[in-house]
Simulated scan of single mutants.
Amino acid sequence: MTEMDAGPEFVWDDQVAVRSVHFHDPDAPAATIVTPSVFVAVQDGQGRFLLVQRRDSGSWEFPGGRMDVGETAIEAAVRETAEESGMRVRITGLVGLFSDPAFVIQPVAGEIRQPFVVCFQGVAEWGSPRPDEIETTDAGWFEPAQVEAMTLEPGACRWIHHAIAGSSEPHLE
Score class of each variant (00 low, 15 high):
A28I: 06
V40R: 08
G45E: 13
R48Q: 04
S37H: 10
E84Y: 11
D27N: 14
T92M: 04
I33F: 02
M67P: 00
F62Q: 06
I74R: 11
R54G: 02
R79Y: 10
V95M: 05
E71D: 04
A28N: 05
V40P: 00
E83C: 04
P63D: 02
G96T: 04
L51K: 09
V52S: 11
G86K: 03
D44S: 06
Q46C: 04
E75V: 09
F39G: 07
F39P: 00
R48D: 05
G96I: 09
I33P: 01
R90P: 00
D44W: 05
G86W: 00
L94K: 09
H24V: 10
F62V: 10
S59M: 06
A76Y: 07
E84K: 15
G47R: 13
R90M: 12
E80V: 05
G93R: 01
E83W: 08
G96D: 04
L51C: 08
D56T: 01
T32V: 06
F62G: 07
P29Y: 12
R66Y: 00
M67N: 03
S85W: 00
P36L: 10
V52F: 13
T72H: 03
R79P: 01
S37A: 14
R79W: 13
G65M: 06
S59D: 14
V34W: 07
T32Y: 06
P36W: 03
A76W: 15
F23C: 14
Q46E: 15
T92Q: 07
V34P: 00
A76Q: 11
V69D: 08
L50K: 11
V78I: 15
I91N: 06
D56E: 15
G64W: 06
F39M: 10
V42P: 10
P63T: 04
L94M: 12
E61H: 13
E71A: 00
W60I: 09
H24I: 08
A82N: 03
Q43A: 12
S59R: 12
E83N: 09
F49I: 15
T92V: 14
R90T: 04
G86Y: 01
S37Y: 04
T92G: 00
V69W: 08
A31E: 10
G47T: 05
R54N: 13
M87L: 14
W60N: 13
A41L: 09
P29V: 15
A73G: 05
E71L: 01
G64T: 05
F39D: 03
D27F: 02
V52P: 00
R54C: 14
